[in-house]
Design a protein around this nucleic acid. Structure first.
Lengths: 235, 235
DNA sequence: ATGCAATTGTGATGTGCGTCACAGTTGCAT
DNA sequence: ATGCAACTGTGACGCACATCACAATTGCAT
């Protein structure tokens, strides 16, 4: 049973540990919501949608991670976000009634719950709670992308951008920022470079520099920030 | 009289030529909306709010332009957007219930319509049309900032970024893209540099280069794109 | 006109980092 | 074990651009 409202325990949103998304609806709205959704499996590597495509669906990630990217003509790619369970895909396209603005690719075996865009829009037109959730969601996306833009524009040095990103990931990760936060970094240097608008080699060098100077430590996919202050002065 | 719904002609939103924002509401909702708003004059240069401040209001620009910026510790500034009549300020802060994420400063004598944040939130909780409008608005902001981020991350050369920005401004300006679009450019090179994460001198050089090679022409604040193709290959 | 501030133009200089090239490493599949 | 692919590490090199310094132009106030 979902801890928030009283619907059955087959709600993948609740299993997804981020029940905020349309789970605390009135039972009646919830029933409607469940009825119009369909459940889709995405094998690893499969592409859910591509930037520029007309948007026809809205989806919620239930399991696995989905990479959102945007590419330029000459093959460079910006990694916009790694969507995790509870994140919504295709929302801004639906609300602004425009084509998808990013490409979504499952980087793990993933499960999603999807809605026909028209059904979704119709739903939020009839349930304020729904449209408020939607508005709140993209607000957060907006802020996150704005931070990205600032990182790209304002930290001139690559070291600064890496520092900024690490601190942001640490806050987001929710570990205690006053101690030495530990981050789960499921990214290759290539990925990081793609988030930072930089090159793989530069990221490698900066990270090693940080490690050698005792600012961070890395064990496999766990990264620990040893000297937060050192990162902060680089911003 | 507002051409869209039947409220009195003192609606500054309608005068603001962007009546989409909460003007096509039911007459009853509209009355409520008008009642809770207050009208504020902003002298040129005055600051409406500052990044990091707790957000207490939502405003709609009626006249004049408002500069939205975000700064880094060392004094660099990213120009996020120039808000024009019809644009909304403080919306994402209200919806995400977070502090203001940018600083808003009137760069001309401006008039705005403002709401207490709590009033505004209460209003959209009771009127779906309102929350849908809100959702649509930040969706557009989101897409715009995403484009900015891409420009910053993907176009390695400054020339590429300038080209990208000019084309974007041209599309936004709504002139015929098949001919030679003319853009109103009310920005100093300093402003442009601040949007592009670059330096004033570089912008000057690129712009002059474009001019000398017959790609653009500039007369005062009007810029005409003579060879769109030349700009496009720089992306 | 005349002065002053803001904006724009342009050279010279140094450097950060993108790019290329290749060498280690890791980890997964069989 | 063994091979292969993906990832990481590191040197060398060159150039685009930030920075500095100052000159020229514009525009606005009086």
């Amino acid at each position: 049973m979902c801890p928030i409202s009283e619907h059955a325990d087959n709600c993948l949103l609740c299993k997804a540990k981020r029940p905020g998304w349309f789970c605390n609806l009135s039972p009646q709205a919830l029933a409607e919501y469940d009825a119009m959704s369909s459940h889709v499996m995405l094998p690893m590597g499969s592409i859910l949608f591509t930037e520029g495509q007309p948007a026809r669906s809205v989806s919620v990630v239930c399991e696995g991670r989905v990479k959102l990217t945007r590419s330029s003509r000459d093959g460079k790619t910006l990694l916009v976000k790694i969507a995790k369970p509870g994140d919504v895909l295709g929302l801004s396209a639906a609300l602004a009634k425009t084509p998808y603005e990013v490409t979504a690719q499952a980087i793990e075996h993933a499960q999603i719950k999807t809605f026909q865009q028209s059904d979704f829009l119709h739903f939020i037109q009839r349930h304020v709670e729904g449209s408020l959730h939607a508005a709140e969601s993209i607000s957060k996306e907006y802020r996150s992308v704005l931070s990205d833009a600032c990182r790209l524009a304002l930290s001139s040095s690559i070291a600064g951008r890496v520092a900024h990103l690490l601190l942001e990931l640490a806050v987001e990760g929710g570990t205690d920022m006053n101690a030495q936060p530990e981050i789960h970094l499921p990214f290759t240097h290539e990925d990081l470079a793609s988030m930072l608008g930089s090159s793989r080699e530069s990221v490698t060098r900066v990270l090693n520099n940080f490690r050698r100077t005792g600012v961070i430590s890395i064990k496999g996919t766990r990264l620990k920030i040893l000297r937060k202050d050192a990162l902060e002065i680089l911003l």
